[in-house]
């Protein structure tokens, strides 16, 4: 009976979704370690945090859960902190520690977004 139930409800999409969720979690853990080290190195170099600034990021995510998880993850990736989101849920206001590495931030966020689309 158990095997019949498993055979009827089995789908490859579910397995792929779980795989991408696990991949997202491990990528996130790696990002936490990297961002902690990067900000600590910023302090050790003697930076006083003067060249920071606000930035607006446009997302194309539709479901509210995806938006919430993206919003939380932006707070832990290196050098970015999510401040505000508008009413339609399309524009996120982000504070960057260094405005110079904007390209880096864009690349990391694009990767997180594509993983989220596959996972949820």
């Amino acid at each position: 009976m158990f095997w019949d139930l498993l055979k009827n409800t089995f789908s490859w999409q579910f397995v792929r979704r779980q795989y991408y969720l696990a991949l997202l979690f491990f990528y996130f853990c790696y990002k936490i370690v990297e961002s902690g080290w990067a900000v600590a190195w910023q302090i050790l170099k003697g930076s006083r945090g003067e060249n920071g600034g606000m930035l607006e990021y446009h997302t194309r995510l539709q479901k509210p859960w995806q938006l919430i998880i993206l919003f939380n993850m932006l707070g832990m990736t290196p050098g970015s902190l999510s401040v505000d989101v508008d009413d339609e849920g399309q524009t996120i206001q982000v504070h960057l520690l260094n405005l110079g590495d904007r390209e880096d931030f864009m690349a990391v966020t694009k990767k997180i977004e594509s993983l989220l689309k596959k996972a949820l």
């Binding site: 936490i32 961002s35 900000v39 302090i43 945090g49 003067e50 290196p78 902190l81 520690l97």
Partner: peptide
């Protein structure tokens, strides 16, 4: 100097 920069430190380095 900035409040937002201090918040970067609290959320990232301390959790590391």
């Amino acid at each position: 100097k900035d409040l937002y920069a201090r918040m970067h430190v609290v959320t990232k380095v301390s959790s590391f």
